[in-house]
Design a protein around this nucleic acid. Structure first.
Lengths: 152, 152
DNA sequence: TATTGTTATACTCTATAACTATA
DNA sequence: TATAGTTATAGAGTATAACAATA
């Protein structure tokens, strides 16, 4: 097979760079907060899904339930989430954002979901053209929030 | 400040999804090969930079020199790289791709650098428009190859 | 004495298995 | 007996410090 269009490769490299830098920004903010990526995923998931049972969180994050204990311990230690025992099932516990945790979660979420400055700076015509093309490139993430695998 | 353009956020979500899925594909291929991301970064770096002293590789990969020993051990064990003692400095060793390693490195590199299928499938007009806009969005990765931080 | 790579060791991340409280 | 979360433990990934060979 012939090599693909070099101009397209350049386009892809530029778009990839944009994404990489947002990702870097996210990880940097997490590090400043003393958090690792799973901590961030948990916070953002709670922001989108509301209080969540620990077992369900393990499913969302595609990790073992025992690790959720560790993640919750750390987030609780920082005052970002709290454990609530479920009223209906006294075995289960729900994780819920504190007020402080919600602020942090919103900030992290913005880094991921807000378009990067270079995109917002585009002319209206360019943004429209880009939107039209992007619709041909794929679907956005599912309606129910799920951590992009790239954050795991 | 007002919320940013929701249409632009949708555009960004779609582009991000594209990137995430390529990243997933890379990690999947690495896992199939019994490699982890640093192994992949080392291979791709060697592909772009040629034989490299272990200390320089540690600098490229932004990790400790002792970890390069472990990475090299694994890659050597799989027959993907070989250690060569430097002719000029008998303390130093160079890492170099074997023929097999070069094939693997090319395959991994393609996953990262080749535009995703959805992009290649665009019409010429769309690709040109996208290229024009992408040039306003940022520079591609530096000329001398460096692992995107998102791969670390 | 300074530098290159290796080894010994320790710390973080994450999973598996055993445990407890409840259902 | 089965399920939810926790604890104990183990394995990967990665760093720091001590070391051997060479400069």
């Amino acid at each position: 097979m012939a090599d693909s269009d070099p101009k397209l490769a350049d386009t892809w490299a530029r778009l990839s760079g944009l994404f990489s830098s947002r990702r870097d920004a996210l990880f940097e903010q997490l590090a400043e907060l003393g958090l690792n990526p799973p901590h961030g995923v948990a916070l953002m998931s709670l922001l989108h899904a509301g209080p969540t049972r620990m077992g369900d969180m393990a499913e969302t994050m595609v990790c073992d339930a025992s690790y959720i204990t560790a993640v919750a311990d750390r987030l609780e230690e920082l005052g970002l989430v709290e454990r609530r025992s479920s009223p209906d099932d006294r075995r289960a516990k729900q994780l819920a954002l504190t007020a402080k945790g919600e602020k942090v979660a919103r900030r992290l979420d913005a880094v991921v979901t807000e378009p990067p400055p270079a995109m917002t700076a585009l002319s209206k015509a360019d943004r429209d053209a880009l939107a039209r093309i992007a619709r041909k490139l794929g679907e956005p993430d599912t309606s129910r929030w799920m951590p992009p695998r790239s954050l795991r």
